Amino acid sequence: MNHDVIVTCALTGAGDTVGRNANVPVTPKQIAKAAIEAAKAGATVAHAHVRDPQTGKPSRDVALYREVVERIREAEVDIVINLTAGMGGDLEIGPGETPLEFGPGSDLVGPLTRLLHVEELRPEICTLDCGTLNFGDGDFIYVSTPAQLRAGAKRITELGVKAELEIFDTGHLWFAKQMLKEGLLKNPLFQLCLGIPWGAPADTTTMKAMVDNLPPGAVWAGFGIGRMQMPMAAQAMLLGGNVRVGLEDNLWLDKGVPASNASLTERVIQIIERLGGRVLTPAQGREKMGLPLR
């Protein structure tokens, strides 16, 4: 069991959630405000995507990331900044017998283009999604090939940014360890992402199987989506890991009660403390994750 817990709040994500909960932040000002509110609620880390302020659709515009990061850094709170580097891997296969007629949801760029905002802003942490995955029941695929991953891992390491390896299935963990073996990564974090169709399911057996295959001494966290967010947070802590909550992964605090990033942070902290743990401050979290202290 982990008694000293890092809490990450994933603020908005890239999913089609804007119309389903009014608290999902869209503009850079709203996303930064959500990070600040999560920090005040006790979160250690803020994990941020950006969205087009006009449409709410996911974006990888460097200017939007810049505004979010600057607003957080200028605030009178401390929180570790973790930016996604997963945008630009979306492929919507054409329907039926026309698979090469890619759909409007496609946004496929190379591994270094996915890191342009990381190059400029140098967050403390950025993510690396460690494999290709079917998302949902349609024709949507997230694409992250071994060659792309090697290039991305190498560049993140060169930039001096801590990689958080997003593990959506067991093969992703296998390849993440291969990149470690090849020297492409230095002391990365591991994030076990459970419950996304059709990746690893959000259950105890799957999480434990992944944990049992982590490198010795790895710093890791886990989460489940939707109604499994809090059960998987508790399970991660019991198995020795850290936790992630936030509106990226779950829109509801209770049945029929819309959540906010702050309320989800407060809820998971209650669970951690009732299990006998404590939440690490950003300074304590940096020490545990091997980040430079401020």
Rank of each mutant, 00 (worst) to 15 (best):
I72E: 01
F135Q: 08
G217E: 07
A147D: 10
C193G: 00
G136S: 10
L189R: 05
E166T: 02
G110V: 05
L159Y: 08
G105N: 10
E92W: 14
R73K: 09
G290K: 08
L128M: 14
T44L: 04
T127N: 00
P104C: 08
T8E: 12
A63K: 03
V257N: 07
F102Y: 12
T8N: 10
G277V: 10
L116R: 01
V118D: 00
E37Y: 07
C130G: 00
Y142C: 06
V257Y: 13
A202C: 10
A38L: 06
K186S: 11
A32N: 04
F168Y: 14
E124L: 11
S106A: 06
T281K: 00
L253T: 13
N23R: 09
I141Y: 15
A35S: 15
N187H: 13
T113R: 04
V243L: 12
V77F: 06
A236N: 11
F190H: 03
D254I: 06
E287V: 12
E97T: 09
I79R: 01
Q54W: 08
V211H: 13
E164M: 02
G152E: 03
A163K: 03
H49G: 02
L194N: 03
H47L: 09
A43K: 09
V77P: 08
L91M: 12
V118N: 01
D78V: 05
V77T: 11
K154L: 05
A41K: 06
L180T: 04
Q54T: 13
L239S: 13
E166N: 02
D61K: 04
L214E: 02
E67F: 05
E287G: 02
E273K: 13
Q30R: 08
I167E: 03
E92N: 06
Q54A: 10
L293Q: 15
A75L: 08
A43H: 07
H3Q: 09
V243H: 04
V257Q: 14
T170F: 15
Q54E: 15
G94F: 14
V77Q: 07
G276T: 12
V109L: 07
T98P: 00
T265L: 07
V5E: 03
N261K: 11
G19A: 13
L100T: 13
H3W: 05
K186G: 01
F168L: 11
D107E: 07
Q148G: 11
P146V: 15
A209F: 15
W174R: 12
D139Y: 14
E166W: 01
S260N: 08
E158F: 12
V5Y: 03
A43Y: 11
T17I: 14
L165C: 04
E97S: 10
A209T: 15
L159S: 06
L108R: 04
